[in-house]
Design a protein around this nucleic acid. Structure first.
Length: 206
DNA sequence: CAAATCCGCTAAACCTTCTC
DNA sequence: GAGAAGGTTTAGCGGATTTG
């Protein structure tokens, strides 16, 4: 059922679409999203696709679309290996942990208009997905300062109070780097009365 | 240098198609 | 249908490569 030339093209296209959606993916992440079985097999599949991919070698290979790959899936956004690829990789762990939600969207701007300009509150969530009326907001804490996190959490509190997420209170999912930061983020969310869960990279043995 | 990962090679499993 | 042919996927071994 998985083995004709057509099936192979479909799988390759699905992988390219994942890269379009998620920017950068490790070999292991592609392997679990697309059920590529063994490590060796995943490496083989991705090697076969190299004409569409750029590769960053650092531990596990990290893949992103090259020009050929972008044109195959109509992708305008050009990724560069410089900068914080780690941020994308961390976000992907949550995408996978929550079973690749259909409604998942990255970089969502959330705005609540105030009575005056200065009461307007805007936040850009790293990702959002929803089931029915229930929103889940994803935040990645990579090299952010805690002060910035605190400001962001205050903004989320305001948005929640103004029912910007609708009648049902949203849940916040964070991923961070260390156990200590995890504890700090839990506390900050608790203080603002937000329902939150905080993971660290080690939760995904990364 | 050691540890992890990649990848070439090979053999087996499996699917589709063809032929009788 | 059963069985052979032809193509792909899968997994394991081991050497090459990369990274810290």
């Amino acid at each position: 059922m998985h083995h004709s030339k057509l099936q192979r093209k479909k799988r390759e296209e699905a992988i390219l679409l994942s890269l379009k959606k998620l920017d950068f993916l490790t070999r292991g992440q592609i392997q679990s999203i697309h059920k590529l079985k063994s490590d060796r097999n995943a490496q083989r599949v991705l090697k076969q696709m190299e004409e569409y991919l750029n590769v960053i070698r650092s531990g596990e290979n990290i893949y992103y679309l090259n020009a050929a790959g972008r044109s195959l899936v109509n992708c305008d956004k050009v990724r560069k290996s410089t900068g914080n690829v780690q941020h994308y990789i961390m976000r992907n762990y949550l995408y996978i942990a929550y079973s690749c939600p259909q409604s998942w969207d990255n970089e969502i701007r959330i705005t609540s208009e105030g009575k005056s300009k200065k009461d307007t509150v805007t936040c850009v969530a790293d990702a959002v997905f929803k089931r029915g009326d229930f929103y889940t907001v994803i935040e990645v804490d990579n090299t952010q300062t805690m002060k910035k996190n605190q400001v962001k959490i205050q903004k989320y509190r305001t948005l929640k109070d103004r029912f910007t997420f609708g009648p049902v209170a949203p849940k916040f999912i964070w991923i961070t780097t260390t156990e200590n930061r995890r504890k700090e983020l839990i506390k900050l969310n608790e203080d603002k009365g937000l329902v939150a869960e905080v993971f660290t990279l080690t939760d995904f043995n990364a």
